[in-house]
Each structure stands twice: as C-alpha cells, then as structure tokens.
Design a protein around this nucleic acid. Structure first.
Lengths: 340, 340
DNA sequence: ATGAAAGCGCTAACAC
DNA sequence: GTGTTAGCGCTTTCAT
C-alpha cells in the first residue's frame, strides 16, 4: 500500500503510448470529436492500460464550465424532500452531469452556499429550500448560470420556476372534503409561513369562505408529524365547529390524525375527515391510510432539469414557470370514494 | 437580461484594481496566506466590487485536488438513508468541502459511478450503497483517494469502514425480547441478502439457538414497509410457534406490525412482541410506537468523514474499522420498560 | 483526420 | 510581505 500513489497519467502519457498527439487523445474523449474509429479505439486502449481518466478540472478550466449542478435543499430528512432530491439527482446524472448537494436549513444559509457554487462554475442551480436573496439571482443571470426555483416564492424575478399552484391545491382539498359531505371546515398549517405550504392553506380557507362555509384556522409549531400532533389541544378546543380538516402537509396530517384519534378520542373519518398534501409513502401505510393530494415529484424533477437545460441553450429567454399536476387520492380518512 | 454575461473577472482583474500582483490576490483568498491584514482587506474589497469568485477548477488543477467528496448512496428515498445522507452532507460542508451526490440503486451502477469520480479529483468517497468492485478500491489506493465504506461488507480490503456490529445488533434484539419474557422467537429479514441487514438477522437467530430457544426465520420480498406487510401470510401460518419477532429494519417491522394487527388479528404486544432496527422517526409515531434499536447516524457521519480526513493526512495508514454505538429503545410493541 | 502551439485561471517556488 | 515565473492538464484554433 505504501508502494503506489505515483501521480496519475495525463493525456500526454496516453498520447505517447498510443503514438498520437495530445489533441488526438482529447478528441478521443470528447463526444463529437472528429477522429477515426480505429485511432479512437487505440487511444482508449492505451488509456485503459495506463488507468487514465480525463481531468475534468482541466477540461472545465478550458471550456469554462464544469458539468456540476448545484442542488440546494432543506429538510432533506423529510420524506417528500428525500424523494424529490433523489429524483433530481437521478435526472441530473442521467444527463451526464453531476449533482453537488448543498443542505441549507435556514434562509441565512442559502445565500453563502449559492455564492460558493460560482467558484465551481456550476452549469446550473436547483433550489428547493428557502428562496435565495435576489442579489444572487441577479448574479446568476449576469454570469449566465441558470437557476430553477422549485416550489418557491414567485416574488423573485429572473429565475425559472416549477411549482404547484397553491390556488388549485386549496380548491382540490376543498372539493375532496366537500364531496364527502363536509360543510364546516378547518385548516392546519405551520406557524412560520412558507409560500407553497401556507399558500395552499390560505387558498383553501378562501375557498371555504367564498362558498359561504365556516372555516377555522389552526397553526402548528412546525410542519412535521409532531407539529401536527402538538395541535391536539387546539383541535380538542375547536372540534365542535368543524367536521373536515385540511392539513397543509401529509406529515402534519398524520400528526393531526393521531392527535384526533389517540389524544382527543375523535373518530376518523366518522366524526372528523382529514385530507393531507404530498402523498408521501407513509400516507399509504396501514395505520394511516390518509386521503391526500399527490404531487408528482419525479415529473417535477424532470421539468426542473428540462428548464435548466433549456436555459443553458438559450440564456436570454425570459423566465418561465411550469405548474405541476395534482391528483386527488382518496383513502380512509375520508368517507368518499375509496380505493380498496 | 440580454445585456450581461460578459466573462467573469479573474484574479488578474482584481490584482489590477487593487494595485497588487496576482499572487497577492491568491494569498488573500487562501487560509494560511502570508499577507498583511490591510492588503487582504483591500483585495477583498476590489474582489467584491468586481464580483470576483475564485475559480476552484483552476485552483484544483494546480493543487491537484478539488474539495469535492463523492457520496454514493442507494435508496435515498428511505427514511434512514435520507437522514444518513443529510448528516454526511452537512458534515462534509462543515469541513469546507462539497458533496457530490451519486445515487446507485444496483451493484452494477456503483462501479461506473465511482469511476467517473476520478475525473473530478475528489478528495474522497463515502459509500453507502452496494459494495464497490475491489478493482476500484485498489485504484483509489493507487491514486491516494480515501474510500470509506458505511455499513458494507468487510470482505473488501483496503478501505476504511464504519459500521454497526451485526453480532451485537442480534444480541441486543434477543436481549430486548428475552427481557420481555419472550421464549419462542421469529426473525424477519429481506430475501436478498445484505451484509448488515441479513447479518443481524443471522446473529439474532444464532443467539436464540445458542440459548436453546426455538426461532423461525421469515423472509420478506424486500426491506420496505410493504415487504414487511407482505409477510402477513407467513406470519399467520407460523404465529403459533413464536411470541417475539425481530425485524431487521424498522420499515420491515412497521409493515409486520400492521400485518399482524390489521391483517392477522394478532394483538401487539399482548400476543406478539416486535423489535425493529434503526429507530427511524416514524418508529416514534403514535400509531406505531415501535420498540427498536437505534443507530446514531449523525455520529456515524462524523466518524466517516473523520476517517476520510485522517487518511488524507496519512494515506499509507492501514485501513480501520470503527463500530457504531447501538441503543435499545423500548416503546409499546414490547411489554418491557416503556418510556411514557 | 491529425499535430503544433497557445492559453484557460490559478498556485507555488523562488527571489527580493 | 510581495512580485516574478513557471507550470497544473486540458481544449482549441490553425495549419497541414
């Protein structure tokens, strides 16, 4: 083990072994390279023999871009986000690029993190955490680095976005509960506001009012299971005024469901019907069977990368926003149509 | 928006504006740089004004290493793995490096993926998917690239490893159930074998036999919730011969728990006691309250990065293996000591 | 189709 | 403490 660690071979070494020039080696390792098939083969053999790997740092220095793509994500340990990030990473890898993963838990983190990516000449950035400072977005535009915001506040100009429509989400939730004969509503959302999460809660409440039906708003400490579970007291105190509850995330919904049946002794769905949002895997588990609204995160990932690629092609094109498709999923926390 | 996109400023531009040489600019942006405080400040101001970012590609070309660290992970959409990867990524970022995330779902994926990392001059690789081909490990050693295997088969030589001790895991599971007066055992593990997961199931079974107590082995189709749930028929068929079940993962355990109570009408913990492994967040949810064994993944991540860093310091040092601490967690799927 | 030469932006010796 | 010089390994005109 002490033996090795001689410095890795360069294109020069390969060139010599193959009896060609370094340019030819370079061409042998680039896709559209003008090179005859047998020379390419010979070069590849020499490379194989030497254990040669193209040095992407050097290549990137020349071509002015690495094929690194930054992913900025918060709460990666959350089911929906984990699925999302996995899908995005796979999509990026599928395009021959490599994802650099930045975890940003607070709004303060994301600025410096994004900023540091400039040093890597990233091909693009996909953001699914707090919205980055607009100064950075501007710098991205200046430098020609595409930024795609996933489910982020549209206040920021100049970045492409893929998101669900909070309006539609709120409406779908209302429709699901209303179809199950709910006429008095409640909605549970996290105390600290977030564009998509609070947005659909607001939209839901608006919708109820517009239809002339009462709605009580309950705030959770956070958007986790325990946030929902912690709303038990609030639910107990107000349960007399509603029979249907929309929770802005599945995690919240599952917490609220346990709060209702375990802590408050409220029967679900007989006395209280619940609808969540996201359709995380756990929503389908036997002990929950949560009715919810599905976001197609795989499609979302595909669109995000598509937007990024398109903007690499045409950096000057005006920012786009693409909406995701939302699907109603009826399970056993509502009395409506149920899949077996 | 059509305006910008002039090529980014280089250290040369900063040098000119600050009235210093390019080396001085370089020193101003390196940590141990021999440079006076006010010159450094002046340089930083000039850089700020120009919107300058150090080009890490060029720096890496010179220093012969990017500060990229490859993470190879499978099943990122799984709760335990998501937590793990988040912890690893944060640990890497905390050390000023950047994680490159590679998702490899099959053993065939991991080879090429690892191989491609050589082109990025990664500072190290952390692997928590299928075990990589040993040829690659050798190449890593040759090139001086540290590899840390997390919970992987120890058959591979030449890489550092951090893992739980399957023997200990099996013993702890036995102890937990035995302490709750279980005398006839069963163990559920996935059909396709995996070093740590199958390893602890084997160890558990061995332990039962060594103590002279009967144990039935049940195989699940995979290691997910639905794998456990799908074992309902097997459980129903064999339930007469055991009153305690160890499931090799929490997901499996929660599936088996639902299989028992929902599909087979077996009361837990009265008739059947269950112990899982991992202590994922969901194990603590109200509807499950699963007794389990905790892996400290944050500590695991810290150790993995520590091992990598240590080997960067001293590339020739012999491979190490560090074991994780395991903790018994009693909840409501056992009749033993229970936290409120 | 292939080779020669220039240069990407930076750091590291080496002088001073 | 600062400037000068020489590459790091690659791609890319421009010849041929």
């Amino acid at each position: 083990m002490v033996d090795g660690m001689r410095k890795p071979p360069t294109s020069f070494d390969v060139a010599r072994l193959a009896g060609v020039s370094r340019s030819t080696v370079s061409r042998a390792f680039t896709d559209g390279g003008k090179i005859s098939t047998d020379v390419r083969k010979k070069v590849h053999e020499a490379a194989e023999q030497l254990g040669y790997h193209v040095n992407y740092l050097a290549r990137g220095l020349q071509t002015r871009h690495s094929n690194l793509v930054g992913i900025v994500a918060s709460r990666l340990d959350t089911p929906i986000r984990a699925v999302q990030v996995k899908a995005i990473a796979q999509e990026i890898i599928g395009h021959g690029m490599r994802p650099m993963l930045l975890t940003a838990e607070s709004a303060d983190d994301v600025g410096p993190l994004l900023n540091s990516m400039f040093s890597y000449n990233v091909a693009g950035m996909l953001v699914t955490s707090d919205t980055p400072p607009s100064a950075i977005i501007e710098e991205c535009n200046r430098l020609g680095v595409p930024v795609v915001l996933i489910n982020r506040d549209p206040v920021i100009e100049g970045a492409d976005r893929v998101q669900m429509d909070p309006e539609e989400a709120g409406r779908l939730a209302f429709e699901m509960l209303h179809a199950c004969r709910v006429r008095r509503f409640a909605v549970l959302s996290p105390r600290t506001r977030t564009y998509t999460v609070s947005g659909r809660a607001d939209a839901f409440a608006d919708h109820c009012r517009r239809e002339g039906m009462p709605v009580v708003r309950i705030l959770a400490e956070n958007q986790s299971y325990f946030g929902g579970r912690g709303a038990a007291a609030e639910i107990a105190a107000t349960i007399d005024s509603f029979e249907g509850l929309f929770c802005a995330t599945d995690l919240l919904a599952m917490g609220a469901l346990d709060a209702a049946r375990l802590d408050c002794g409220v029967a679900v769905p007989e006395r209280l019907q619940i609808v969540g949002f996201d359709d995380i895997e756990q929503a389908g588990w036997g002990a929950y069977q949560l009715s919810t609204i599905r976001q197609d995160v795989v499609r979302q990932a595909r669109i995000a990368v598509e937007l990024m690629l398109a903007r690499i092609e045409e950096p000057a094109r005006p920012p786009m926003v693409r909406f995701q498709t939302l699907t109603k999923v009826f399970r056993h926390t509502t009395t409506g149509p149920v899949r077996p």
